[in-house]
Design a protein around this nucleic acid. Structure first.
Length: 641
DNA sequence: GCCGTTTTCGGCCCGACTGTTTTCAGTCG
């Protein structure tokens, strides 16, 4: 049987003797194909199950990581050794975050073994995956169980043990069947399951179907701010801190974790009232858990919120713990143990006499572990602990390092404000320069500029610049990269611009090679200064188009074309991994909001968070430069340091 | 399956909440 066959292909060729039908909806197709245990392509499968096509030359890190994640999930259902399972997860996490492709290292096993978390076994697994497109243990587990179980794991309250139990009792593995059994009241026949459990599972399935479970950074941020405002008015709360992936600045957020402390968190009598006060927060549709120290609820948006009450002496330890990441915490606890301490969310304690040595602040905890305090954005177990031990943490970029933004739109195309309004808002933010970069003609629905209008617009921008004090307004354009890599304005017009952002806005479905050639051609145009939102992804909506990032970065470095970090929360493009890749290769970054309204400027903070996650310093980012040097950088003369 | 100032075996981070229990397993973070 061929690896990587799609449902559609299987149905078209009727390879498995299934009833013929012109077009099956995927859901139905999935049910039909279930008994055939066919490895299915990700593109054909609406959830995480993934098989790498045979002979594929570009087995990327994400694909390898996915196979390892799936193997770990299936091993869990199989009741395998939990430490072995952890090894698979750890390998997946490490590979996912690597700037270079591991597939390029398969002929150099020594280099594979240098990667932390990759030992002999995992190195062999990577080689097997890259060479044959399959992984033995993964395939074996898929034969024993069903890929649809991986989806069941996403249902809150359903874990590997219960899924294994359902399989052994009823031979069911998919959402619809479990839902049916719950409705029919059959689950309560099983040990540890009751009528109440059935209701809970049904509710969780409904919730899962309603939303995918992750939220854009700005939405999580807004919710956290509203909740903070609500909590601030409760008597006896002194400190409120949103923790978790929001504090680390991850590109999307699952649950919101908020920590509070103050006198009311210590007094038993006050605490009961406190929980009730918290639950008055508007928009709660369901309370998921209510204990002495924690309350969890679901908001109308589908977002789950956990609020934890803490005594002041543990607040730092809890902040550290609930900020994560999980892997960072595991490493930190191991370090603590080696040094004779044990670390929990309540503090750092000596192993010999159980005495607390730190806990009130994060600084104190990291300090006692002989580490510089690690900024939350770096806490991903990607070398930050080693760097902190050697006092080599980078001086990360901050919001105030930025001197300007050079990707924004006005009413001339699809923006909502005028040049003057954008300039005024930029002055308000303390910027020294901006560039107006409206769309070009290929973006007809945005009223994009042709050569003639572009020239007129330059004149308008120059005039506005003359009349405005306190900021320099540069003339720019966001020019479309056509399907063949040509730009849709003539060179003679582009030459007159201070800043040329070149972006892909059409023909997203090209093959990787075609897209790579297209981008390389655009980067070779001598007028291009920045590649705009380089991967074209829209978070939670559209995947990045495929291309060879390595080749693009090499050409960008050669031609001195900067990569954009588009800070708009649904783009965050480049992402943290690619940014780190760019930095390591010496490619410069420009951080922009792509503002279509003055209110969008504030989204720049989400770009800064991603830049920090990628270990970027002000030197890596061109729009930290003074105007004169920045103008030169836009003409391919980057600063030398 | 990984890893090593406990180095080739024997460990591997820690606690809260829930529900079905009567002392704890499963799940979650």
């Amino acid at each position: 049987m061929q690896a990587g066959i799609t449902i559609r292909k299987a149905l078209e060729t009727n390879a498995f003797g299934v009833p013929e039908g012109p077009h099956y909806p995927y859901k139905q197709a999935r049910q039909i194909m279930e008994p055939f245990r066919v490895p299915l392509n990700r593109s054909a499968y609406p959830f995480s199950h993934v098989t790498i096509p045979l002979g594929c030359s570009c087995v990327d890190n994400k694909a390898i990581a996915n196979v390892f994640y799936e193997t770990a999930d299936l091993m869990e259902i199989n009741g395998d050794d939990s430490f072995r399972i952890r090894s698979y997860r750890r390998a997946a996490e490490v590979i996912e975050g690597l700037p270079q492709q591991v597939s390029a290292l398969i002929d150099e096993p020594k280099k594979l073994l240098e990667i932390p978390g990759i030992g002999k076994g995992m190195a062999a697994n990577i080689q097997e995956l890259c060479r044959s497109g399959k992984l033995g243990p993964h395939q074996d587990l898929l034969l024993k169980y069903r890929p649809s179980m991986l989806e069941l794991l996403k249902i809150q309250g359903l874990g590997p043990k219960t899924i294994a139990l359902l399989w052994s009792a009823f031979q069911v593995s998919d959402l619809a069947s479990v839902e049916k059994l719950a409705r029919e009241g059959k689950l309560r026949e099983l040990p540890r399951l009751s009528e109440k459990s059935e209701q809970k599972i049904l509710k969780a399935i409904e919730g899962y179907r309603r939303i995918s479970g992750r939220f854009l950074l700005d939405e999580a941020d807004r919710t956290a701010q509203k909740l903070t405002e609500h909590l601030r008015h409760i008597k006896g709360i002194e400190k409120i801190t949103p923790a978790g992936s929001l504090r680390r600045g991850r590109e999307t957020v699952g649950d919101l974790d908020v920590l509070i402390t103050g006198p009311c968190c210590v007094d038993d009598e006050q605490r009961a009232g406190l929980i009730e006060e918290i639950l008055r927060f508007p928009g709660i549709v369901e309370v998921l858990a209510k204990g002495d120290n924690k309350v969890s609820f679901k908001l109308r948006s589908g977002m789950q919120v956990d609020v934890r009450t803490l005594p002041p002496e543990s607040y730092g330890a809890a902040m550290q713990y609930f900020t994560g990441s999980k892997n960072h915490n595991v490493s930190l606890r191991q370090r603590a143990l080696k040094m004779g301490f044990t670390l929990s969310e309540y503090g750092l304690f000596r192993l010999d006499n159980n005495k607390r040595v730190a806990g009130a602040s994060e600084d104190e905890i990291y300090g006692k572990l002989k580490l510089d305090c690690i900024p939350p954005e770096l806490r991903e177990n990607c070398g930050e602990i080693e760097a902190a031990a050697e006092h080599k943490l980078p001086h990360l970029i901050t919001l105030k390092d930025l001197r300007g933004e050079v990707h924004m739109h006005t009413v001339e195309t699809d923006g909502k404000c005028t040049i003057d309004e954008m300039a005024a808002a930029a002055i308000e933010r303390g910027y020294q320069y901006i560039a107006i970069t409206d769309h070009s003609k290929n973006l007809a629905f945005a009223n994009g500029l042709d050569d003639k209008r572009a020239v007129q617009h330059i004149a308008r921008i120059h005039a506005a610049n003359q009349q405005t004090d306190g900021i320099t307004i540069m003339a720019g354009i966001e020019v479309d990269i056509l399907a063949d890599g040509e730009l849709d304005l003539s060179d003679s017009v582009l030459e007159q611009m201070d800043v040329v952002v070149a972006s892909v806005h059409s023909a997203f479905n090209q093959e990787a090679q075609q897209m790579t050639d297209r981008l390389l051609r655009a980067l070779s145009n001598k007028n291009v200064s920045i590649l705009g939102h380089p991967t074209g992804r829209l978070l939670l909506r559209r995947d990045a188009y495929p291309f060879d990032m390595d080749a693009v970065l090499k050409t960008a470095l050669k031609n001195k074309v900067a990569m954009e970090l588009n800070a708009y929360p649904d783009r965050l493009d480049l992402n943290d991994v690619h940014l780190r890749m760019a930095r390591e290769r010496g490619v410069k970054i420009v951080i922009n909001t792509d503002a279509h309204h003055t209110s969008h400027f504030e989204k720049i903070k989400y770009g800064i968070l991603q830049a920090r996650r990628a270990w970027l310093t002000p030197k890596d980012v061109l729009n930290t430069l003074p105007e004169k040097e920045f103008r030169q950088a836009m003409k391919h003369r980057w600063p030398t340091s």
